[in-house]
Every structure is written in structure tokens, then in C-alpha cells.
Amino acid sequence: MIIKNKQNNFIWLGLAISAIAPFFFPNHITLLTYIWVMIILALTWDMLGGQTGYTSFGNILFFGVGMYVCAVVQRDMFSSGLDRFERVSEVVVSLNASEYFISLAVGTFSGAIVAVLLAVILGSGILGMRGHYFAICTLGLGHAAAEITSGIEYLGAGSGMVTPIYPSELLVGKEGFYYYAFLLVAITTFFLFRKIYQSQFGLALNAIRDNENKAESMGIHTTQYKIAGWSISAFFLAIAGAGVGNVIGFIDPVEIAFSGPTFGVWMIVMAILGGKGTIWGPVLGAIILYSAKETFWTYLLGWDKVALGLLILIVVVYFPKGILGYFKERKQLSNSILSQKGES
């Protein structure tokens, strides 16, 4: 009970700081926004990667799909500007405030739904397989999506698309709006996932992680749980993608939407760094990795990628269970020693 209260106090404090942070760092609002983005990426990856033990290298697919679906809805919902331009990638629609937010909301939601449908369809095909085979099957997903998108003129092909310009007549600027929007999505994701992990569903995911044969022999339809878990992740990842496309202002299949080497790898490393299979691990990992990345980028110039790679290497070799995994294990060890003492 005491621990619970402490944790809640900690959460309230964190939220209070987050709510006022933009006022103290007005020049770094977008950077702060990305911390929330990273937290969402890490949390969603961990539902399958950590809680279920199914490593996915392809979650970036849902991120990019959310981004593209949203951008298309934003472009086409209130204007048919497409035919006036030669190249789709040069289309910039200008919307008034209500059009902007309505198309953003509809676009984000549509992107999330499409991502869920994809997760269900793909999952039915490859989540029947066991961990390693699944992991291999997901390897090419992001790349394939980038290739396909690059060939579709309607989506701007290889040059990508431009997202609508944020309406200028508003009280809250673009940076502030997206900061609070992502804050809200990240918090929703966190609390929802925490509730899920404390539920029967969450324990079923853990059972699959620990011994899938046993779970099956006990009558659990394991594939259905895995698909459901992946779909929930896809939903929130797509929302993140939709938002990021608008924060950046343009989207591109290889470098942004389906970018395996950046967002795709980061989500995995962040979850592992913080401690996969825990609720706080991905949050912690996201904050640490993103801060490290930004610091390296600022101070190490050309060497930032090397430094980041080194950090990842150290984590994987010395902290394979991540920061929280390390502490959790120690706590469990002392539990077990205590109970053995209690017996004798």
C-alpha cells in the first residue's frame, strides 16, 4: 500500500512537471514532444516484445501506416486539390482551424483502425508461429511497406507528402498543441497498458512468454491473445505516427514513415534498456535513450551514431534485462531468501 502511494505521488509529480515544462523550455518544446513519442513507441513495442516475449522488428509498419493514412485524410477530406498539381508530393492544403482539427482527428482514428486491421490480418498469418520464426517474418515488414509506398503516386511515391499547415489564427501554437496532444496519448497509453497488464489478459501474455506449450495445453487460445496484443499496440503506434507526420510537416517512406534504422530500432532498444516486460521500463528507457541521443547529437557531432551504438552495445551485453529488470530480479531474490528463512 505504501509503495503504491509512493508510486502515485511520483506519477502526479511527473505529470505536474510535464504540464508546465513547455513554459520553462519554450525553445525545446518539440524535443520534449519527442520524449512522449518515444515513450509511446517503447510501451507499444513492449506489449509483444516484453510481456509476451515475441520480438517484432516490424512494428514500424503500424507507425508509418498511421502516418500515411492520416496525411491522406487530411489532404483529401476538405479539398480536392490533388488534380490541380502535377506532383502529389508538392500538394500543400491549407485548412481553417476547424477543418484542420476535424481532419486530423478523423485521419488519426482512421490510421489507427487501418493499423489494427493490418495487425489482425498479418498476425493471423505469422503469430501462429513461435517466437523466432515470428521475429524473422517481421524483419522485412517496414522495408516492404517503404518499397510499396514508394511506388504509389497517390501517396507521393518516393518523394512523400506534405502535411497541412497548422492554422495560424490560434491561441495555442503548433508546437504547444502537439506537445499536449502527445502528452495525453502517452499518458492514456501508459495507464491503459498498466491496467491491461494487471488483468487476466496481461497474465495470459506472460504465460505465453514463459511457456506457450503449457498455455495451449491449459486451453488458452494463445494466437488470439497475441493478435489482440499486437492490435492494441498497432492502434497506439498508428496514433503516434499520425502525430509525428504533422510535427515534422512532411512525410517520406524511407527516412520517416517506415524508418527502421531510427524509430524502428529505437523502440526496441528503449524497451530493452529500461527493462522489457515491465510497465516502467519502456518509459525509463525512452527518457534515457532519447536524452542520450540528443546529447550526443549536440556535443559529438559526427560521432553521435557511434556513441549511440556503443551505448546500445553496453546495454545488451551488461544489462540484458534492462535497468528495471535488474532491480526486479534482485527484489525477487531477496523475497525467495526471506521465505526460505521463514521456513526453517
Binding site: 487476466q200 489478459f201 504465460a207 514463459d210 511457456n211 503449457k214 498455455a215 488458452i220
Partner: peptide, 25 residues
Amino acid sequence: IYGKMTCIQNMQISSDIDANWKRVF
């Protein structure tokens, strides 16, 4: 058994969780 779960959790997850899909969360 489910090695990284407590005995209680091993037992809980062995109850009939699929019996009512609406309550699985």
C-alpha cells in the same frame, strides 16, 4: 510451469479466463 510468474499467478491464469471474453481485461 510459468517460471517467471509467482505460484499465485500460475494458478490464476489456469482459471477459465476465456469463459467470458468481456471480463478478460
